[in-house]
Design a protein around this nucleic acid. Sequence first.
DNA 1: CGCGGGCAGCAG
DNA 2: CATCGCTGCTGCCCGCG
Length: 1227
Amino acid sequence: MSQSNSSFGRMSFPTSLGDDELIEYLNRLEQEESQLGIQLDLHGANHRDPSAVKVEDNLHRLPRKIHNPLPGEANEGVSRDTIESLQGTGVPGNISQGTHTLSATDADGDGFQGIDILPPSSPMEVSISALARESVIRASPLHQVASNDSSQLNRLRHANANPIKPNEPKFGDYRSYFTDKHLAQQQQDKDYLEWEQQRYLGGSEVPKEFPPLFKDCVVYVNGYTKPGIAEIHRLVILYGGKFRHYLGSKGAPTHIIASRLTPRKMIEFQRYKVVRPEWITESIEKGVLQFWKQYTVINIEYGQQQIGFTRQANESLNEANPFIGEEVHEMSTNPRLSDICQSSLKDRTPAVNHEESLSGKPQEVQLVDEWRGNSRTELTLKSFNVETLHLSKEVLPEKESDTNKNILKTDGSPSLKDVAEMEPSHLQIMDDELELSPLTRPPAFQLQEDRITSEHVMDAKHPEFLKHYFANSRLHHLSTWRADLRAKFIEKVLNFSRSIPPAKTASKVILHIDFDCFFAAVSALGQPQLLRSDPVCVTHGGQTSDVASCNYAAREFGVKNGMWLKRAQVLCPNIVALDYDFPNYERVSGVLYDILLSLGARSVFPVSVDEALVDASNLVTSDPVVLMADATAKLAQTIRDRVFTETGCHVSVGAASNVLLAKLCLRRAKPAGQFVLLPDADGVEEFLSEVDVGQLPGIGSKITQKLTVMLRTDKCSLGELRRVTRERLTATFGIKTGTKLFEYARGIDATSIDIAENPEEYTRKSVSVDVNYGIRFDAIQEVDVFMARLAQEMHERLAKLHLAGHHLTLRLAQRAKDAPVTTPKFLGLGKCEFISKLSKLGVPTNEPGILSAECKALYRMIGISTVDLRGVAVTITRLVDSRGMIKDNQSKLVFDKTNTTMGKPDLHFAKNRALVVPPDRSSGKALRTDDQTQYQIPSEIDSSVLEELPSSIRRSILAATSNTNAPSIDYGIDWSVYEALPPEIKLELDGELECHGLRRLSPHTQYDSPSESDYRQVLPNISEAQPPVIHVEPPVNSALPRKRKRITRDFPVQKVRTEGLTPEMDEDVFNELPSFIREEILRDVAEARKLRSRRDVVMEANLPKLVVQSSDYISLQAPPTFQNLSCTAEIGALLTSWISDTVGQLIFPHVKDMEIFLQYFRKLLQQRKLTRCLNLYLLVKENVNALQRFGGSCEQAEQTIILEWQGCVLQLKLLLDAYCRPRGLSY
DNA sequence: CGCGGGCAGCAG
DNA sequence: CATCGCTGCTGCCCGCG
Ligand SMILES: Nc1ccn([C@H]2C[C@H](O)[C@@H](COP(=O)(O)OP(=O)(O)OP(=O)(O)O)O2)c(=O)n1
């Protein structure tokens, strides 16, 4: 890079840190600092003593803290309620509104009534502020308050009864998914302004004027710019503008800053004013907002010829309506449905403006004419087609798939797809339709819309992947609905004092009620022109897309739920694909449950969103036995009629004396029917004989297959099954499954559906987050970042449920050896092996930091190659109620060496949970508590640090300063030489050696978990105590005898090879370290832990600060500590974790943390620990660069964080250079 | 022999 | 382009103390 002055933009993302970049960076720092009024002369800084360089000041550019909840929080209760009501979660009294609306829409009959059943939009606005608070919390992950909040959270979302916790993430609140970050950013921006003002007020400088040049401007930066994104951000904010990290529809940008644009971006950005960065700088320079057109980017490289129409279009439009940007903004924050359509359309449709379209301004016509007349239409049209296809799927109430010839039309007009597929010459005719139909005919519902840039696939690398994915995953919805329903019904039962159960009659009547082809039926509601005989299915569309549900017309052709669309289309060429409509599924489900609950049955048990069991014994037993069947049939008929009237969808009802039979009857009843099988013994037997084993609950394909092999039959009916002895069945299938088969074959089933009988049995015992789609990673750093996001998601789910857990299980899907790298299903699993590993966390927790670190550590322990990873699942078990747990870190490290013969350190994390015991504020957590450090880096004390480390690392800390008594390990090190080393170097070497030595082990060795039976838990599992009373033991730490062994420095390890480490060689060792540290350090630490536990090593449990304590023993300087760590391996692990967590959660590394780290680095240099510095530098650099190389290109916010880290890298380099150059050292 | 981790299977 | 393969639970097997 020769032109060091002109490539500032590139500087923002250095992949290597050459001298040129360094100089540039210095220049830039100087620029910025002078603008900020900070005295900082960096000229020649690299020739100075590092302590004189005040580079870290640079990191104060933006204050990242978010101090207070946003205004608008006061509204939250209301807003949650309102949102709640429109979600239709099935609470009595809440649903009927939807019902009326629905019948109105039914009568409508034009196919576009979907709009009528959409929720009103205004509450959404408020929900944004609610989410903003969520993001505030998220921005300070170490100060999570959610789970500390002991206020009454109505986690079951009783819309009418209770206030809803405001920051409870609302399931199904799709639109607000993308709003939280905006608001966090806005808050940051506000903070920055305040801070900036403060500086001038407090300082001696003359207050500088910041005219609001960019008032009404909303700026977005694309790609590399000079100055960089951070600086532009700062300037825009400073001069009264707004800044966006996304091109989302919320607060849509008015200006895009870019130095150059790819052709695709050209098209994408057509409706924006795309300007060069000089627009910003020169506007500020001249004190007047410069006319943007002078800085337009569009014609820089591509010229007028090619897409000149775009520029002109933009100009004419924007000049005709200078407030267009503002309009966009306002509309976006008020997401009425039509706005949603418009904004999404705007984003995807080139060269049109829909505000204009709506108001019918003449410019629009002109614009379109211009566009059509352009000679280069072809190129554009191609892109246009692509975009439009997508658009049509999202915006139109129609479901289309590329391969599907049956484009479902809701009226006679051609769909956008039709238009898009026509020759350009036809477009002229279609123009009106093209522009207007999506606006006048909004969709039934707007699915979560990805904001991905067109060149980037939405895989797990994308920062918003999880939200996007879960918003669109049917199985996620299904699971969440079921869990919510369970919880709701348990709560219901607990709230009502248990009514005396009627004496258990010999005969029960169980109804099993289930919607027929639920998704398909509900989705088809919006398409009344469809006939019942039209085969339809619900699917995302695409060859390998799953058919979630198909109607009975389609089943005639052999189409089944779960089948790929490709196959369904082969079986049934005329099948019509419908879109998912999750909010309506929820609503319709609510109607069903209302009806069922209104029956007054003894119990209602939710099986699924579309399916429930009802114990109707009390409703029909008063009749004489003979008439019971009739009464039951009448009841079933009533239910079916009511449900159909109120929802327009059919349920079927199976009724019998137990759950098993009811289920089988239901199957017989479908579709749209009922089947009652009541105590007629012969009838039951006859009925059962015809049933297939596969229909039994809990008997799936595998068992069926095994049975058919065993019986040598094709199809195995219960009649045949009955001929098999119980013994044979239990021998083949195990005691439980065998018995079940035996009894089910005879219609025997004692399954209870009475939640009230034993609510405990139905409360959840685990919480998990699974992602087995979109998992594609190149670098381990990307995995780390993803793990951090997964942990954050897990944390949010746990916090919402007021749960914390003792155990974390990571389950990975690994591409099978023989499976192709590209899966048949796009971003799918393919053929995989699953490997899972459980970790005991030591304390019940839901802290995202711990969860994240643990996941990363477990990932390394499992040792799956990054590129073969196809799925990740995290499960938290051994749950406890987190309410009542004191949130602030009060973990105490407790040492207990009573078990020294086992050779294991007994490490107890005992939370001082005694509610009467005040938090020990004297123990040095000043940084955390007072300064709100974002990434928890306490400056002094053990416990805080330790808590945020993964237990693996936490544990290894104990060993880091102690002996590694592992005689059988061949480290290739001459330990006598080691012994001869100065103690200081020995200390420094310990951690490194450990890693280095361990590295010789096969990385794929499976390690056993350490036994942690000695872990003492203060908090009992909630499940053991009926009322959630927290049992508190007296704090054990103070009472504990200090049995910790005196630290002994003599290495007991003597049985080693003799060649090896010499004082000169340690350099070599170290030089070798970075390459593996950066890739394997976490794994090594984890392995160290495994190794220790496995080899009965006699070790000493040590506080990190013991390193310092032993400084009297060390004659030289004690090594500086970073977070009380002095082992490079651990510090490296911490840094790696820090980096991936901040990038993963899109939070800035906290200024103070960075300061502390740089301070540490400086100290290290002062002590001339060059190799360590080098290692740390390379570690950080490699981590940051890897993220930038692989993952970072898709998301501005992520880039900004990475940029911040690149700043850090450069600062480290600065410090290193300043140290090395005068000494003639090079590295 | 009982416990617990790992894993398979199942349902919607 | 695609596509959105979740999630909670039960039961079996096997190794360990
Ligand atoms: N593999 C599956 C199975 C089910 N579902 C969803 C769509 C279904 O509509 C809903 C209910 O599942 P059912 O098993 O009850 O199937 P249907 O309701 O579609 O059909 P039916 O109950 O009439 O057999 O769950 C799904 O997405 N994927």
